[in-house]
Design a protein around this nucleic acid. Structure first.
Lengths: 156, 156
DNA sequence: GCTTGACCTAAAGTCGACTTTAGGGGGTAG
DNA sequence: CTACCCCCTAAAGTCGACTTTAGGTCAAGC
C-alpha cells in the first residue's frame, strides 16, 4: 500500500491532482485509514496507468469515469466498453491523419524559412511556385494545402 | 472585400470568434469603414488560413500573434520564424509518435473487448498472456505498454 | 510539550479560448 | 415610420482540469 505522496512521486501527478481524481470518482475502491488517510493498492496504481492512457487518447475525466464505472458493473457493459474503444480508435486515427498534414505544412514552412535565412531575405522565396520546389517539399506543400478551406461565398 | 458575417460563413468560425481574434491582434492590417465596420481583404483571409493551421499544430493564439508580428517586422525576424517552425515540427513529430502508441493501446483494447463480447464474459480474456495473442495484437500491446511509467518508489 | 511534516477538506482562483449578454448604431424593405 | 438585419463594444460567463488557499488532524522526533 502507498500513501498519496508516494503515488505522486511514482507518476508525474501532484498530490492535489490525485485528490481531485479521487473526488471525480476515478478510484471507486480506494481504501482509507480510520482517520481518513488514503492508501493506494496495486489495483489503484493500475487505474492511474489506464487513466493516463485514456487522457492521452483525448478522453475527458468524465468519460474515463464512465468507463471505470462500466468496469465495475461487470459483463453487462462489455459492449459499451467495446464501442467506446472502437470510437476512440477512429478518433485517434483521424487525429493522426490530421497531424500528418500539419507535419507536412511545418516541413514546408521550415524549408521555406531555411531558404529565406540562407538568402537573407524573403523576397525571392515568397513567390516560389510548387514546380520549383524540391520533390519532397513540393509533396509536403501540396499535401498540407490540399484540404484548406476556401471561400464558399462570393464577394459583394 | 468581405464583411465579418461573410467571413464567418466561409470558415467555420463564429462572428464573435473573429472579433475575438481581431482583439487579440491577429489581423494587424484589418480595415474598417468610417463607422467602424470591419472589412476583410484577401490578405486577411490568408491570415485566417494560417491561423487555422497553426492552431492545429497546437500553437496558442499568443504564439500565433507573435508569429504574425514577426511577419510584419520583415527580414530581421527570419531566423526567429525558422526556429519557430523547426521547434513546432519537432513537437508535432513527438505527438505523432505518442498518438501511434495510443492507437496501439486502443487497437489492443478494441480486440480485447471484441473477444470478451464474443464470449459474453471477460473471465477468460482477462488473464491472457502476450504469447497467446494474435501476432498483430501482441505487437500493438507490447508497443503501447513499453513506455508505461512504473513505480519508482518502494512500498513502505 | 512543542515543532515538523505529511495528511485531510472545502472553497476559491487560474488559464485559454471562446460564448453570451446587454446595450446601441445604421441602412433598407414594406 | 418602423421592423429587421447586420454591424459594433465592453464586460461577464463558461468549461475542463487543475492549482492555490485557508484552516485543521495526527504521529514522530527533539
Amino acid at each position: 500500500m502507498y500513501s498519496i505522496g508516494e503515488v505522486s512521486n511514482m507518476f508525474q501527478l501532484t498530490v492535489p491532482t490525485l485528490r481531485y481524481y479521487d473526488q471525480q470518482g476515478l478510484f471507486p475502491n480506494l481504501k482509507r485509514s480510520e482517520s481518513g488517510v488514503r492508501s493506494f493498492c496495486q489495483n489503484d496504481l493500475e487505474s492511474i496507468r489506464v487513466i493516463e492512457y485514456l487522457k492521452k487518447a483525448g478522453m475527458s475525466l468524465k468519460d474515463i469515469r464512465t468507463f471505470i464505472d462500466w468496469c465495475h458493473e461487470g459483463d453487462g457493459t462489455l459492449v459499451d466498453r467495446q464501442n467506446m474503444f472502437l470510437d476512440k480508435l477512429a478518433v485517434v486515427q483521424a487525429e493522426i491523419a490530421e497531424l500528418n498534414r500539419v507535419q507536412d505544412l511545418l516541413k514546408f514552412k521550415a524549408w521555406y524559412y531555411t531558404q529565406a535565412v540562407a538568402e537573407n531575405t524573403e523576397a525571392r522565396i515568397k513567390h516560389i511556385q510548387p514546380q520549383d520546389m524540391p520533390e519532397e517539399i513540393r509533396k509536403a506543400y501540396e499535401n498540407s494545402h490540399a484540404e484548406l478551406q476556401c471561400p464558399k461565398v462570393s464577394p459583394r
